[in-house]
């Protein structure tokens, strides 16, 4: 079973518009944008990974905090998609994240992310109890996404240590300090989120050399694999055995919705690892899943045939190592 932790779940709302005017021509005007199409679904990085895995037939349990009417909608969506849910309920309302996708500029969406509810200390204690219990059933745990108000930035480090003691492999898919604190525990697989800032730990990751240096630092801490985005269609995998570059020749104009592509990547890697693939092949499949997801309007591409098709476009090159 693969356990995913999403401390700050969201209801992802997508609006597709023909044109996105962001400035007024006359002061008395107001901007009215009519959506050509809209959709909503349960979200947050861990939840997206769980949805992907459940659709691929992998047993997965999603954990985190739910609140209010939005929490009910998130739960319902997860259950309908075959994800097992084990959440702590708190007061307030889960966040809603909005993405507006303009026709012809699909690879530059406009996003508005809410902060999410504050998590009371008592709810965190209940979560930890449930988490320890679920670790007993898990093979992998995915610690993913933003940290909500009220929770320490060292939370992923603490959860990774708990998982390590339980003999569960840890995957960290997050950014900034929460990621880097967890990296110091030597997790199995790390996928840094560098969307907001091209930094991993305190190291910049703008160039190939910088990415490799940051990945090597993670490996020094005991990390078995660190996969860092180089650009939209290229990632670099750094492991103790060597360094590989994954590249896909796909024009940006082919992309319809980039939200969730990274989560499909992590889900794809885990899916193939549970099927017995080695890490290099699993990452290739993950990248194909990310490309397939970016090329469809729904957040995640859940069609195995489309993902297999994308496998042909992903090239793997060894950069370092024997």
């Amino acid at each position: 079973m693969i356990l995913t932790v999403t401390l700050n779940p969201t209801l992802d709302k997508f609006y597709w518009v023909d044109r996105l005017p962001l400035s007024l021509e006359r002061a008395e005007e107001e901007i009215l944008i009519r959506a050509r199409k809209s959709s909503s679904s349960a979200g947050g990085k861990g939840i997206n990974v769980s949805v992907f895995l459940a659709c691929m037939g992998v047993e997965t349990v999603a954990m985190g905090f739910l609140a209010g009417h939005t929490g009910q909608i998130i739960l319902r969506d997860l259950l309908e998609r075959g994800v097992t849910a084990n959440f702590v309920w708190i007061e307030g309302e889960n966040r809603t994240n909005i993405t507006v996708i303009e026709k012809g500029k699909e690879y530059h969406p406009v996003k508005i992310h809410e902060e999410g509810p504050r998590i009371p200390t008592h709810a965190q204690e209940i979560f930890l109890k449930k988490y320890r219990r679920m670790l007993k059933r898990a093979e992998y745990v995915v610690l993913a996404g933003a940290i909500p108000p009220g929770i320490s930035e060292t939370v992923y480090k603490e959860l990774a240590q708990e998982a390590g003691r339980a003999g569960v492999k840890v995957v960290v898919h997050a950014g900034r300090r929460p990621l880097w604190e967890a990296v110091k525990t030597g997790p199995f697989f790390v996928k840094p989120d560098v969307r907001e800032e091209l930094v991993v730990g305190d190291m910049p990751v703008r160039t190939e050399e910088e990415i490799i240096a940051a990945g090597k630092k993670a490996v020094e801490y005991g990390c078995q694999a660190c996969l860092i985005s180089h650009h939209v269609t290229g990632d670099i995998l750094i492991t103790p055995e060597g360094i590989w570059e994954y590249e896909a020749e796909v024009p940006l104009t082919k992309f319809k919705n980039l939200v969730g592509a990274d989560d499909a990547l992590v889900g794809g890697v885990l899916f193939r690892l549970t099927k017995g693939d080695d890490l290099l092949e699993a990452v290739k499949f993950g990248m194909a899943a990310a490309l397939a997801s970016a090329e469809v309007e729904p957040k995640l591409c859940l069609a195995p045939a489309a993902i297999e098709h994308e496998m042909r476009t992903v090239e793997v090159r060894r950069k370092e190592g024997s």
Binding site: L75, L79, V83, T84, A85, N86, F87, W89, K129
Partner: peptide
């Protein structure tokens, strides 16, 4: 079944 593990101890 609903795969909802909401429970107490």
């Amino acid at each position: 079944m609903r795969r909802d593990l909401t429970s107490v101890e």
